[in-house]
């Protein structure tokens, strides 16, 4: 067992490694898949801006990924990312943040960015909980489970966020888990290379602030469940909603073309600038 330098260390802020995520936290695996995806498609981190909100998952790009990053306020990364993309359409803009951030407090930003089809890649780490603040119930917490704010059981149904984003109009939507690392990595590559609003829901584990309250104190407890409960979307035909509720539907939910927002906005700006110039030279 030697000391070696990982081939992807150029992509992460090596000087602050090891990262601060708890033992077996899925955030580390998502970071791993993300840098592999970036390297695989040959994206230069200097041509990217990564935007995050507040929460453990928001630490994946900031501080750990070596691109320019915006670590914004809770729930607002998509709003900030929209501004970046409008001013610098030449850059690849990626949002990585948690389920509480993206689908709870930031839920409206999410559905409207999908509806507008803004050219962003949003990777939502769904650990089914508010991890950073101590394991409070999230809109994504499965019903019936215990959290620090639902000490008896959660009586709310969980949001199916990927389905919501697909319905709202995103061009590319997929769901994977931290067990399905190879397809997750490939899906991230697709999301970052295609134009339009791309969304990946990554079912992940928070052993510390969720797992230990529900009898799953280790990463492996979760990963085995993800492996066993996952079902490919093309195998779900004919299944009832009740049957599907017990499973994690994985795979690509949609991949389609729709007019993109920022491109159209810049078309209008160009038209208007040209019209003003014509007016002046008259």
């Amino acid at each position: 067992m030697g000391e070696y330098r990982h081939r992807l260390m150029d992509y992460v802020r090596e000087e602050i490694m090891p990262h601060r995520f708890c033992v077996g936290c899925g955030c580390g695996t998502v970071l791993n898949a993300f840098v592999n995806a970036v390297e695989e498609i040959g994206l230069e981190p200097t041509k990217m801006v990564c935007v995050s909100g507040i929460g453990c998952s928001s630490w994946i790009p900031s501080p750990y990924f070596r691109s320019d990053t915006l670590h914004t306020t809770h729930g607002r990364p998509i709003a900030f990312a929209t501004g970046v993309k409008i001013m610098r359409p030449d850059l690849t803009v990626v949002v990585i943040a948690g389920d509480g951030d993206v689908s709870g407090i930031g839920g409206n930003h999410l559905i409207h960015a999908a509806r507008r089809n803004i050219d962003l890649s949003v990777f939502m780490v769904n650990n089914m909980i508010y991890g950073m603040t101590g394991g409070q119930v999230a809109p994504t917490t499965p019903s019936g489970t215990k959290t620090s704010t639902t000490p008896h059981r959660n009586i709310e149904p969980a949001f199916k966020v990927a389905d919501l984003v697909m319905t709202a109009g995103a061009t590319y939507v997929a769901r994977w888990t931290t067990y399905h690392v190879f397809p997750l990595m490939e899906s991230m590559q697709n999301a970052m290379t295609r134009k339009g609003f791309s969304f990946i829901e990554i079912i992940s584990q928070c052993p510390d602030n969720y797992g230990r309250r529900i009898g799953k104190p280790t990463a492996n407890d979760f990963l085995k469940q993800f492996r066993d409960d996952a079902i490919r979307i093309n195998k779900t035909e004919g299944m009832s909603e009740e049957q599907l509720d017990k499973r994690i539907v994985i795979g690509k939910l949609c991949d389609r073309e729709r007019p993109e927002y920022v491109t159209q906005l810049h078309e209008i700006i160009r038209e208007q600038v040209a019209a003003v110039k014509r007016e002046k030279t008259k």
Binding site: M1, H6, M17, V23, G24, A219, N220, L223, K224
Partner: peptide, 18 residues
């Protein structure tokens, strides 16, 4: 196979899933 002793946090994921 190389394991970096200083980065590993002993989560046992590799042991379980190899």
């Amino acid at each position: 196979i190389e394991i970096n002793d200083d980065l590993c946090k002993g989560c046992d994921i590799c042991i379980e899933f190899c």
